[in-house]
């Protein structure tokens, strides 16, 4: 019996690990989305955290917790710089601009080989203890729960649903969105270093457009109106390819796409939708 459990664990430990790493990225995206910003910036913040973390592991003896902190802060600094430019834009342009940011990130990463290893990337000879990953994720999710209940969470919901109504109630949307970007940056930076350590490798491709798209898909799939939605979505989105691989190996991507499409059409507000839950409760 123990053997079976151990085998299963061996087979799925890395899937579980990646699901948790992706949860960080999904939460980073959710942080901005829940304040009304559709942004792919978490990829860039992840790159900041990932490469900084990789360099710290390679060239210093700083303990892991401090590396995590540094990576988070690096992401937050980048995000706040980005926010100063982006928050002036109207929402459609902001989405486009953040996509451009992802493209620029790749060019910068490719062209600063001293910092990032350039095309070849960096190998990191240090594994990521899963209990660290799990522990930090729990703390982060807890923080999102607390944020959701706080003044910030309430104001952010108003800004997201109707910005002009929110401002007329005295809420400064820029302030709310600046906080959202800061949170997104910190969590994205954390996700970046986790990803780097999980892969034991970082390269320009680690943080590129596919990551941006999968994480936003994860958030919407899990439920972009609920603090736990991103975690759920990231899990489904990480497990899906593994499952598809098992059943229809050669059609894996087509299966993924079709699954995403079906979910979006039939559950447009995601798996966890507080509004639907309330409606259901009201009907009872």
């Amino acid at each position: 019996m123990m053997d079976i459990v151990e085998d299963l664990w061996a087979a799925y430990a890395s899937t579980l690990g990646f699901a948790m790493v992706n949860a960080f990225f999904a939460l980073a995206t959710y942080a901005t989305l829940s304040a009304g910003i559709l942004s792919f910036g978490a990829v860039t913040f992840g790159a900041a955290g990932g490469f900084l973390g990789a360099q710290m592991v390679l060239h210093s003896t700083v303990p892991l917790p401090l590396i995590f902190l540094a990576a988070g802060l690096a992401g937050a600094v980048v995000s706040l710089l980005v926010a100063m430019i982006f928050l002036r834009l109207e929402s459609h342009w902001m989405a486009l601009a953040s996509l451009a940011l992802v493209l620029i990130t790749r060019v910068v990463v490719l062209n600063t080989p001293d910092l990032t290893g350039g095309v070849n990337g960096l190998s990191i000879p240090q594994p990521l203890p899963l209990e660290w990953l799990a522990g930090l994720l729990v703390v982060t999710v807890g923080a999102f729960y607390a944020l959701d209940r706080s003044w910030y969470g309430i104001a952010a919901r108003a800004v997201r649903e109707d910005t002009s109504v929110a401002t007329c109630m005295g809420i400064d949307p820029r302030r709310i969105q600046l906080i959202a970007m800061g949170i997104s940056g910190f969590v994205g930076g954390l996700g970046g270093v986790m990803m780097a350590l999980m892969l034991q490798f970082v390269s320009p491709d680690t943080f590129f457009i596919h990551v941006a798209f999968t994480m936003i898909a994860g958030v919407v799939l899990g439920g972009s109106h609920h603090w736990f939605g991103p975690v759920l979505g990231a899990a489904v989105f990480t497990a899906l390819p593994t499952v598809m691989q098992a059943f229809i190996p050669e059609m894996q991507d087509i299966g993924n796409g079709a699954a995403l499409l079906l979910i979006m059409i039939f559950l447009p507000r995601g798996l966890l939708d507080p509004r639907a839950m309330r409606l259901r409760r009201a009907r009872k």
Partner: peptide
Amino acid sequence: ITSIAFWI
């Protein structure tokens, strides 16, 4: 999101 699905 659906366009991403179709892209894939």
